[in-house]
Design a protein around this nucleic acid. Structure first.
Length: 481
RNA sequence: GCCGGUGUAGUUCAACGGUUAGAACGAGGGACUCAUAAGCCCUAAACAGUGGUUCGACUCCACUCUCCGGCACCA
């Protein structure tokens, strides 16, 4: 029986077009998912969209749209990533507005409530009369609205539901101590441990419906809807049909004894994923996650990507010009798996020409030209075998770039071998030996193609197809000047 | 401010208490031609600073400087 493997990204909030940062997250996750499938696991791979909350409600209002119509539009844009980035065919796409998700969120709420972890309390909302908007602490400067510094911020009290996070400080600390690899990389794990050690405050998990109706109704309270955080996190289990399909849930998300859910998230998500969500699961009496993998951010020319700077890089246009696998190649080989990395068109282009046009693409051309010309037919396809440790070890530590370095080392060695053994000359002086050599080169190319499967699925397929047909493939990566 | 991290060739990264500090991209040169003016070979090029521990430090310690992250309701 296949080993079940569960992997999920975070759900991007749909108030803007997909950008390269989320493309990084989902491509990293996709490489892991494809790698596990290659290793023979039964892979469940999840992504989707986070669609509730005040920001979306306001945005929809501004554009004079119904919130549902507004989120439908963006959900469709994010779904396009499946084709544009050539994501794993079995990828599930959950929306927090899906009926099954809403039902799951309500059931989850009830469980936490039954466990005594949800209670009502006054919540202080900071309100700027000038903007006529609620403000968060991080939006204020010296306790004042930066746009209307002459006006006092008004404090409005409203009754909200709170989650008893404080109760889970000790359980979380014990949990972290028992699970040394729960968050990777370790410096992110240290951050969250330090955060929890400082003590936890209960957080609000609902909003007044009359002010902000765009959320999942709180069970048995017509006046409140769930706060978007609480609702969105639950997608990780609603997507495997919790609570109605217990077998499926346990197969993929796991059990108390053997948690199985692995999550990929950005560095801004450590607290929510590694502490809030885990406490919520403990409260609901459900298995925790197995592991949280935290990636860094992509900067552009050394600057943070932001709408106001107008430097946001979108994946669609890059895919348009260079192709899906070129984008995947860059994200996985030239972006650090855990640290922030810089993106520039110059760097992208250099990496493209060096690694893909001159490297892999050219190698495929030179070998398959020889093979098509001199071999009587396709080579014997090598039987599947174990992948070398230089490939699997970095992969299992989520060092995608390390695994790719190894593949590119094999590419280089193959180029060197062609230089040294000169099949193009040998075929003229000793035809049998020349054919044997060319077949060996094609066989090695086939191995390289196999190892590219998790990173560059389309290229993997094209190369294998070319070798099976003994035909020179199309120009895989035309040089760009 | 507190806590944690970082600083290595032009660039992005690697390494180790001890032979000439590795690699890739980029740069310069060379011989070749199967291939996408690609590939191969060769060359130049670096340990932030000061002090200390040690027979010996890029690696350990202290301090200075650089840059980055965390320090709760922004998802």
């Amino acid at each position: 029986m296949q080993k079940p493997f569960y992997l999920t990204t975070t759900l991007p909030y749909v108030n803007a077009e997909p950008h390269i940062g989320f493309a990084l997250e989902i491509v990293q996750a996709d490489a892991i998912a494809r790698y596990r499938a290659l290793m023979g696991d039964e892979v469940f791979f999840n992504t989707g969209t986070d669609e509730h909350g005040l920001k979306i409600f306001r945005k929809a209002e501004e554009e004079g749209k119904d919130p549902q119509a507004y989120v439908d539009h963006f959900a469709a844009r994010f779904k396009e990533l499946r084709e544009k980035l050539d994501l794993f065919p079995g990828l599930t796409f959950i929306r927090t507005t899906d009926a099954k998700h809403k039902a799951a969120a309500q059931e989850f709420w009830r469980r936490c409530l039954a466990n005594g972890d949800i209670y009502k309390k006054d919540y202080e909302v900071k309100y700027c009369v000038g903007c006529e908007l609620e403000k968060t602490d991080s939006e204020l400067e010296n306790g004042r609205c930066p746009i209307h510094p002459n006006l006092e911020i008004e404090i409005i009290r409203e009754e909200n539901y709170f989650f008893r996070w404080s109760k889970y400080q000790k359980p979380l600390e014990d949990f972290y101590a028992a699970r040394p690899d729960f968050v990777v990389p370790d410096f992110r794990f240290n951050e969250i441990k330090a955060f929890v050690a400082r003590g936890l405050e209960d957080f609000s998990i609902s909003r007044l419906k009359e002010k902000m109706p765009w959320g999942i109704p709180v069970p048995d309270d017509e006046n409140q809807v769930m706060y978007v955080w609480f609702d969105a996190l639950i997608n990780y289990i609603s997507t495997v049909d919790w609570p109605q399909d217990r077998a499926r849930f346990e197969r993929f998300w796991g059990t108390q004894e053997a948690p199985n859910g692995i999550q990929v998230a950005g560095k801004d998500q450590v607290r929510q994923q590694a502490a809030m969500w885990q406490a919520m699961l403990l409260s609901a009496g459900l298995p925790t996650s197995k592991q949280i993998i935290i990636h860094g951010f992509i900067t552009v020319n050394g600057q943070k990507m932001s709408k106001s700077l107008g430097n946001v890089v979108h994946p669609f246009s890059l895919v348009e010009e260079y192709g899906t696998d070129a984008v995947r190649y860059f994200l996985l080989r030239h972006i650090h798996p855990f640290e922030d990395s810089d993106f520039t068109m110059e760097r992208f282009k250099e990496a493209y020409n060096a690694g893909l046009a001159n490297g892999l693409g050219n190698l495929a051309s030179r070998i398959m030209t020889l093979a098509e010309k001199h071999l009587p037919g396709p080579i014997e396809i090598p039987a599947p075998a174990e992948f070398p440790e230089e490939y699997t070890r970095p992969f299992e530590a989520y060092n995608y770039n390390g695994a790719m370095e190894y593949v590119w080392k094999r590419i280089q060695e193959l180029d060197q071998r062609i230089e040294k053994e000169e099949p193009f000359k040998l075929i003229k002086t000793d035809e049998a030996a020349g054919k044997k050599l060319i077949a060996e080169l094609a066989t090695e190319l086939y191995w390289i193609a196999r190892m590219l499967n998790p990173f560059m699925p389309a290229t993997n397929a094209k190369l294998k197809e070319a070798i099976r047909a003994n035909r020179k493939p199309e120009n895989l990566f035309p040089r760009k000047d």
